[in-house]
């Protein structure tokens, strides 16, 4: 990926572990991301977000003082205070419930990822850029949790393996072109799969990536909860 292809992205980072915070700062700077503040708790994150109004806030979930979900709550607060700021929440674990809370309302500029994803630097940074540009990124782990919980008589059963793959990549917030590149097929083929999926799930077709993600997630979530199936 060539340097300077992207506008300089300004990021506020919150992570309580010094080791990971410094590692992330180093990683992002090497990838030409402007880390304007790196803080260690949710309160400092809110202050830094108010002060810098960055393009993106990248935060851990568990932080002082209670080490529960203050990062998540801070991320939700940032979104409501600064609609122009995208948020990506990193976590040691991913939970559908957290994903649902984070994606509630608008799905523009939201990401929820396992910490492991930082290992693939290129992919990680491009995900951050995608979210900063208004996209949505949901960790494949959340999607597969939802898929695995969907019950047997679900419309998902009618999807072909290839269509399931496309669905998963779609839920992660990828565009048709990105899905096509990942699966090494043509854009046309992906479009066909996508329209099949939407038809089988009974969802209205949508061309905007982030709204697509939301539609798929809502569907999966409902399918995973018996009794509230659409």
């Amino acid at each position: 990926m060539g340097r300077g292809r992207w506008p300089l992205m300004r990021v506020v980072l919150a992570e309580d572990s010094v080791l990971l915070r410094e590692g992330l700062v180093q990683l992002l700077r090497l990838e030409d991301v402007d880390v304007v503040a790196a803080v260690e708790d949710a309160e400092a994150l809110l202050r830094a977000a108010d002060e810098h109004v960055p393009d993106l806030v990248l935060t851990d979930v568990r932080m002082p003082p209670t080490f529960s979900d203050e990062g998540l709550r801070a991320a939700i607060a940032v979104r409501s205070r600064h609609p122009g700021t995208a948020v990506v929440v990193l976590s040691q674990y991913v939970e559908e419930r957290y994903a649902a809370e984070l994606l509630g309302g608008s799905t523009r500029g939201v990401g929820y990822l396992l910490k492991d994803r930082v290992g693939d630097v290129e992919e990680f940074v491009s995900t951050l850029r995608r979210v900063a540009a208004g996209g949505t990124a949901v960790d494949p782990e959340v999607v597969s949790q939802l898929l695995s919980r969907a019950s047997r008589d679900d419309p998902l059963e009618r999807l072909t393996p290839r269509e399931l793959e496309v669905l998963q990549l779609m839920a992660e917030g990828r565009s048709n072109a990105a899905v096509a590149a990942r699966l090494v097929v043509t854009d046309k083929a992906v479009e066909k799969h996508v329209s099949n999926i939407f038809a089988k799930l009974g969802l209205p077709p949508d061309t905007e990536d982030h709204r697509r993600v939301l539609a798929v997630l809502r569907h999966l979530e409902a399918a995973a909860r018996p009794g509230t199936r659409p």
């Binding site: 572990s17 080791l19 590692g23 990683l27 090497l30 040691q92 910490k115 930082v118 630097v121």
Partner: peptide, 21 residues
Amino acid sequence: HDGPQQRLVSLAMQLGMAKRA
């Protein structure tokens, strides 16, 4: 969470950066 998991994330991150380098 505070020990091994952080270290392993850090390990993955450093390897990722090494690959990029």
